[in-house]
Amino acid sequence: MLSPRLHSFLDETHSHYTTLHHERTVTAPHTAEAVRVPRQQFAKTVMLKVDGALAMYVMPSNFHADLHRIALALAGANVELAHEDEFRGLFPDCEPGAMPPFGNLYGVPVYVDSRLTEQDRITFNAGTHTDAVRMPYAEFEQLVQPQVLWLTHMM
């Protein structure tokens, strides 16, 4: 089941998407495997604090965030990983750690790794650890309007 907020938004905007139900997973690489998509097409969401304010960083699941490079790309901002306790309340319709990369629905800015822009389609958590959404990347970008950054390196 999709998060109610995401489901309503995608339907109201007449978005083109597919829902994928899968066995319970808790990591993005395992979810990519469960829904049978290449890891570079599965978008994982990492919550950051940028100068003390929460933000989402969305990247392919086969990469990890380089906080130093994020800080440099954001003009020297102080960037650190956010703890789950700091953001859990922002996503009341999502399971912890399964929030979709639609920060615009929750009042959170979104930064996206430029390598996702190379994908025709992306897949991401839909608010649970058993459901995902697949949609054209271009449509995701139009709906979310993230700031695109080139920051990660292979795990």
Rank of each mutant, 00 (worst) to 15 (best):
I70V: 12
L20E: 04
D93G: 04
G89E: 03
G76C: 05
V50I: 11
P29M: 15
M56C: 09
M99E: 07
A28R: 07
L90H: 03
A98N: 06
L54Y: 00
L20K: 12
T19R: 13
P96D: 03
L54T: 10
V37R: 11
L74Q: 02
K49N: 07
M56P: 09
F63I: 09
A73T: 02
M47W: 04
A82Y: 00
P60R: 03
P38R: 13
M47D: 01
E86L: 07
C94M: 03
A82Q: 00
R24P: 14
T31S: 15
P60S: 11
H64N: 13
H30Q: 15
H21S: 15
T18Y: 02
H83S: 03
P60E: 08
P92I: 04
L90E: 00
S61Y: 05
T27I: 13
H21V: 13
H21Y: 09
A98T: 09
D66H: 07
A98C: 13
L90A: 04
A32C: 15
L67T: 07
L67M: 01
A98K: 01
T18M: 10
P38E: 13
N78K: 05
L81K: 05
H68A: 03
Y17M: 08
H64T: 12
P96M: 02
R39Q: 15
H30F: 09
G76S: 05
H68F: 03
A65P: 06
A28E: 10
M59T: 13
K44I: 13
E23K: 14
E86T: 09
D51R: 09
C94H: 05
V46L: 11
A28N: 11
F87L: 06
N78W: 01
N62F: 08
P29G: 14
P96T: 01
D66F: 07
E84T: 01
E33R: 15
L54D: 03
R88Y: 04
V26T: 14
P92G: 06
A98W: 04
L54N: 00
H68V: 05
P92T: 06
T27V: 10
V50Q: 09
D51N: 15
L67P: 09
L90F: 04
T18S: 11
Y17L: 08
P38W: 02
Q40E: 14
T25K: 15
A53N: 09
H21W: 02
R88M: 06
A28F: 03
N62E: 13
R36M: 14
V26P: 02
T18W: 04
M59S: 13
P92D: 01
D66E: 07
R69V: 12
S61V: 05
P60W: 08
Y17N: 11
Y17W: 06
H22V: 14
V50M: 03
H30R: 12
R39D: 14
L72G: 05
H64F: 10
